[in-house]
Design a protein around this nucleic acid. Structure first.
Length: 486
RNA sequence: GCCCCGGUGGUGUAGCCCGGUCAAGCAUGUUAGCCUCUCGAGCUAGCGACGCGAGUUCAAAUCUCGCCCGGGGCACCA
């Protein structure tokens, strides 16, 4: 019997087709990254598999961090990935509902208003000692609650805490904060609210009202706390499946590390092709299908991992291969004079197998070929100008010359790409890993190769991806500028 | 420090729940070769791994215990 690895993603526990709901929960506080893309893809794949509902839900409950352009970044990225969701909402749309939950906890005596300062809360939490506010009456708590809603208090004056277990070994259960005052304008709700819920509560409430059945997310959260909150609010049980973050070698997603590079203009921006952002990957020539395929291949696990770019790049190349026109790019060109060269109108196919059309090139005796190739050849060597004819090298060195050596394909002859005098200059950017081993910026992370491209390249539009034979798949980024995808 | 969660070749993963068919599969990588007018794609073959130690058992990658290492949490971030 033949052995097989896992095909596709594993089945989900307690998932009934047609009765599932999933969510994509970005915090719009930064640009969308590959990590988001992969997590979203997993949720989307399951939504499809189980014929479920999918929510795009912006977790925007910290007005200090949230910015309008980031909402767009996620919408764009998700659209680019062809992830179709059924509903879109912002947690900030539901403040009233979350307030109701807060009030209910207060009424139940499961939460209380606390006016200790931050340092004291921390200290007592560490000691496992409750503060004097914990024992306050429901009435008193509700009175403060109404004042909080009426914006009668300044930032930091109060915090609403969940009554957990101050002696729990799990510190997140030691009366964590459910609400805090942030009088900072919110990009969507402006000055309307200043009492904002923290993640755990907002999340529990949102998952309930969205009817989420399965949560698939990276594991850096406080499960037990959320379970207790759900129970206190008498919410349904949901399946939570956690996995490790998706890290790529030499490319951390941490804003703390990335932002300085953008600010100091070490990279060209958040969309620099070396960046782990979706905009970066797109500029680099990674196509959305490759991200999906890659995600499917690596799946998700709880083990920490650091993906090598080679796997994603390999998947990308395979997908690109049948779609990409071949065009000649000659890096570090050397001029080659060919004696006895026939004057030809050569019609060359854009692809060796697929019918992607062709272009016609007028050739005489002047060519440009990679100097690196000429450098390895001795006088007398017969090589072939790809798709054209053979040339015998008659002079090496600084002004190489050759002579026409027939049209017939010579077995095992070296094939070299070429351009004629009708070419244009181009630069190919070769992105590498942003950071080297020690976590320091890798100065070698971006290289540039200058050369000539054939005339047909002038018909390309920014965003088009072609294969430069013997060089790689490249995406036209700007006029005369390409980026190597792999 | 305390609480979770992990540790299969260079990298990523399958297998672990229900011990034998696993002297460990697949992908990527790399080497050699085939095919091809590409250093792409495709094909063939080789290379390369069960963190350490003990225990249970006829039998352990799979179960138990200890240790080591890594990640996350212990935020008025999400």
């Amino acid at each position: 019997m033949e052995k097989k690895g896992r095909v596709g993603l594993p089945d989900l526990p307690n998932a009934v087709k047609g009765e599932t709901a999933f969510r994509l929960p970005p915090e719009p506080s930064g640009y969308m990254t590959v990590g988001h893309a992969m997590a979203f893809t997993i949720n989307y794949l399951y939504k499809e598999q189980y014929d479920g509902e999918l929510w795009l839900r912006f977790e925007d409950t910290n007005p200090r961090k949230v910015l309008p352009q980031y909402y767009d970044s996620f919408r764009r990225g998700i659209g680019w990935l062809s992830i179709r969701y059924d509903h879109e909402k912002n947690v900030s749309d539901d403040m009233e509902v979350i307030y109701e939950a807060g009030r209910e906890l207060l009424e139940q005596g499961r939460a209380y208003a606390c006016s200790c300062d931050e340092a004291k809360v921390k200290e007592l939490r560490f000691e496992g000692t409750p503060c004097e506010h914990r024992g306050g009456s429901v009435e008193a708590n509700l009175r403060v609650w109404d004042e909080l809603l009426a914006k009668k208090h300044k930032d930091g004056a109060y915090v609403v805490r969940f009554k957990g277990d101050m002696k729990s070994r799990n510190y997140s259960l030691r009366d964590t904060n459910l609400f805090r005052i942030i009088s900072h304008p919110h990009p969507l709700t402006g000055e309307r609210y200043s009492l904002w819920p923290t993640y755990d509560l907002a999340n529990a409430v949102e998952d309930e009202i969205c009817g989420i059945t399965h949560v698939l997310r990276s594991s850096e959260f406080r499960n037990e706390l959320q379970a207790q909150l759900r129970e206190a609010l008498r919410f349904r049980r949901i399946e939570v499946i956690q996995f490790s973050r998706f890290n790529f070698k030499g490319t951390p997603v941490s804003k703390r590390l990335l932002r300085p590079l953008v600010e100091k203009k070490v990279v060209s921006g958040w969309d620099d092709p070396r960046m782990p952002t979706i905009d970066g990957l797109r500029r680099r020539g990674i196509i959305p299908q490759a991200i999906r395929e890659f995600t499917l291949q690596v799946g998700y696990t709880k083990t920490e991992h650091e993906y090598d770019w080679s796997i994603l790049l390999s998947v990308n190349r395979k997908l690109l291969d049948p779609l990409s026109k071949r065009m000649f790019f000659v890096p570090e060109p050397a001029r080659l004079e060919v004696e006895g060269a026939p004057i030809k109108k050569a019609t060359l196919a854009f692809h060796p197998q697929k019918d992607l059309g062709s272009r016609t090139i007028d050739t005489e005796g002047e060519f440009f070929v990679p100097s690196a190739d000429l450098g390895t050849m001795k006088k007398g060597t017969v090589f072939r100008l790809m798709d054209l004819y053979n040339v015998r090298l008659t002079a090496e060195g600084s002004s190489p010359r050759g002579e026409y050596a027939g049209d017939g394909l010579v077995p095992d002859s070296k094939k070299v790409q070429w351009v004629t005098r009708a070419h244009s200059e181009a630069v190919v950017t070769v992105p590498g890993e942003l950071f080297s081993e020690g976590g320091v910026y890798n100065k070698e992370s971006l290289k540039e190769v200058a050369g000539y491209v054939e005339e047909a390249a002038s018909g390309l539009s920014p965003g088009d991806i072609v294969q430069f034979p013997r060089f790689g798949f490249c995406r036209l980024d700007a006029p005369a500028r390409f980026i190597l995808a792999g």
